[in-house]
Simulated assay, not measured.
Amino acid sequence: MLVPDTPTAHAVAEPLVTIVALCHNHARFLAAALNSIAAQTYPYLEVWLVDDASSDGSQKILRQYATQYPQWHLLLLPSNVGNCQAFNQALRQSQGAFVIDFATDDVLLPERVARQVAFMQAQGPRCGVAYHDCELIDEQGQHVRYHFRRDEAGRPVHPLPASGDVFAEVLRRYFISTPTMMFRRTMLDELGGYDESLAYEDFDLWVRASRNWHFGFQDEVLTQKRLHPQSMSRKAYRPGDPYVASTIRVCEKALTMCRTPPELAALATRLRWELRQAVRFRNGHEARHLFRLLRQTNQATPLDYAVGVLSYMLKQ
């Protein structure tokens, strides 16, 4: 009989799944996050505990779990390098056929990996990314809402999110809950992992991946995403936000990747929204850059030009 922790068993039975657990000052939430990895019903796991130079005692907790689960790998980074580089360092050393980027302020429900592996296998080799709905929880772990609106019977209020060729859709709007994603290794290898020159990873990954790979939406709630003041989403577009420049870089990449007028129109929708956010929070330099990109899509409206004029009135 094959045993789960042998390479032969992975090849014959089920694929190995790598979980890269990324931590930066998540001490308050680490136990819940790491216990949720240990509670997975799927046995073929390769776990990397990666600490990005935490200063809140997280490393002590991670060492304790690495001792308790000696098959887990521990990577303590001496200086803060950011999510993209920290993830890539573990990715390059890992072996899983599927990969999960897991922030250690979130929680995996017990069937998460098993259900997602089955879904990815059913979708076929062109599916590079699988994602699903998630429950948003507060700092105490209490329910806030779901990522996608649901009625009292638990059914989505709106039509199911996009699957298949989603390139134009990821340009147009945010709809994927980042913590729910599972990646196919061959896709990550083709893309070279995350772009380490960026301050955040998800938008860039969606754009580059969706150009040649399919995405699959799984209508299940398999992850809990924690909302707290330190999360990236709470800082977006505020003065000093380090992520706006990365968003502009991704939009520049996307402009070179668009092939059809509908794709350019989708990118224009994104740029239009980003432009208004930049003007709203008085980020003049970024607003002007976004306006120039919007003009390059040949989709700018008279109202866009009016907002563009406002961007040149901002001092920054």
Rank of each mutant, 00 (worst) to 15 (best):
Y243A: 06
A31W: 09
A287C: 04
Q40T: 08
Q40D: 07
R276T: 12
E152G: 15
D56E: 06
Q93Y: 09
M187K: 12
L205C: 01
M187D: 04
Q277I: 08
L188H: 03
A21N: 05
L16N: 01
T186L: 08
V129A: 08
N83D: 15
L227Y: 14
R115H: 00
Y44F: 14
T67S: 15
W206V: 02
T104W: 04
L91N: 06
V166S: 07
A13E: 13
I248A: 01
A130C: 09
L255N: 02
D219E: 11
H132N: 12
C84A: 15
A265F: 10
L264V: 06
V250L: 11
P125W: 11
P156E: 08
R270L: 09
V50M: 06
P125N: 08
S58Q: 00
H214D: 14
W206T: 10
L74R: 09
E274M: 14
A278Q: 13
P15W: 08
Q121R: 12
E196Y: 03
A90W: 03
V107W: 11
M232N: 13
T18C: 07
R282C: 11
Y312T: 10
P302N: 00
Q218S: 12
F87A: 01
H10G: 08
A199W: 01
T301L: 07
P78E: 08
A21T: 00
T247N: 14
A38D: 06
